[in-house]
């Protein structure tokens, strides 16, 4: 027990892996339309393998399996494909984007988000996301937040998730106020599991967000605004994923104007 706790404490990603695994188990045992074991196995395998392939090709002396594991678990929770082979492909695309699309020693896109958006854009007849699949059980939302805050408390970039959620809450409340809708509607929309997974495991990725805190605020607000426009004006259901993808292009620019320290997973 003690050993397990020490292990989890060692690296913020260990926390994330545990949290995502718990979510996957909840999905698998309590809800319909959960990924089958083959999907999970193939995604995890393909993602880790791709990471190691790039380590080898680029001669990077590392054997880190944690980042690809987090990516593959995120994919299992959000990505839906019409055929089995799409899942490992998504894993490969995710990790390839991490190594191939880079600027100034940082990758531009959150790998899982890049794979989702690439799938939606390039294979629109085979890939989808089910934002409603998590339902809106309040307790689940609450549990997710609690778990995730701990994760990010360790990671030190909880601010991005909170900036984003804050902006999103603000926009939804403003919309309800403008339409004269009862508060139940924005509250109903906020109790979405997919939104929380996105906020705490994708947009808050320390490697793809700006290094400066103020810039991260700008970044998170921009994601919320773009997502709002896509969702409510263009009726795009996968709005948040597209929004993050689009806004990630600005990270190098924000990093250029707002200088700050690089992020390190392990505290030295």
């Amino acid at each position: 027990m003690q050993k397990a706790l020490t292990f989890i404490n060692q690296d913020a990603r260990h926390f994330q892996i545990v949290t995502l695994s718990v979510l996957l188990l909840i999905l698998a045992f309590m809800y319909d339309f959960a990924p089958v074991p083959e999907v999970i196995a193939l995604t995890v395998f393909a993602t880790i393998l791709t990471q190691f392939f790039f380590f080898k090709v680029l001669k990077i002396p590392s054997n880190d399996y944690r980042s690809p594991l987090i990516t593959s678990l995120s994919l299992c929770l959000l990505f839906k494909g019409a055929a089995l082979w799409l899942y490992p492909l998504a894993g490969v695309v995710a990790m390839a984007s991490k190594f191939l699309i880079r600027h100034n020693n940082k990758h531009i896109f959150n790998p899982a988000n890049a794979a989702i958006v690439a799938g939606l854009l390039l294979l629109p007849n085979m890939v989808w996301v089910s934002p409603g699949q998590w339902g809106n059980a309040v307790w689940l939302g609450f549990a997710l937040i609690c778990l995730a805050v701990i994760v990010l408390g360790k990671a030190g970039r909880a601010d991005t998730a909170l900036f984003f959620l804050g902006s999103w809450v603000f926009l939804l409340l403003a919309r309800a106020l403008w339409l004269g809708d009862p508060l139940e509607i924005p509250l109903h929309n906020l109790q979405s599991g997919a939104l929380l997974i996105f906020a705490f495991f994708m947009i808050s990725d320390p490697m793809t967000t700006p290094n400066n805190r103020f810039a991260r605020g700008v970044f998170a607000f921009a994601v919320a605004v773009v997502a709002y426009i896509l969702q409510y004006h263009f009726q795009i259901r996968e709005a948040i994923f597209y929004a993050l993808f689009i806004v990630c292009f600005t990270t190098p620019i924000l990093d250029y104007f707002f200088k700050a320290q690089f992020y390190q997973w392990r505290k030295t």
Partner: peptide, 12 residues
Amino acid sequence: GRVEPTNYRTTK
């Protein structure tokens, strides 16, 4: 293919 709601959960 199948239609699903995006703001409510689907249960079989």
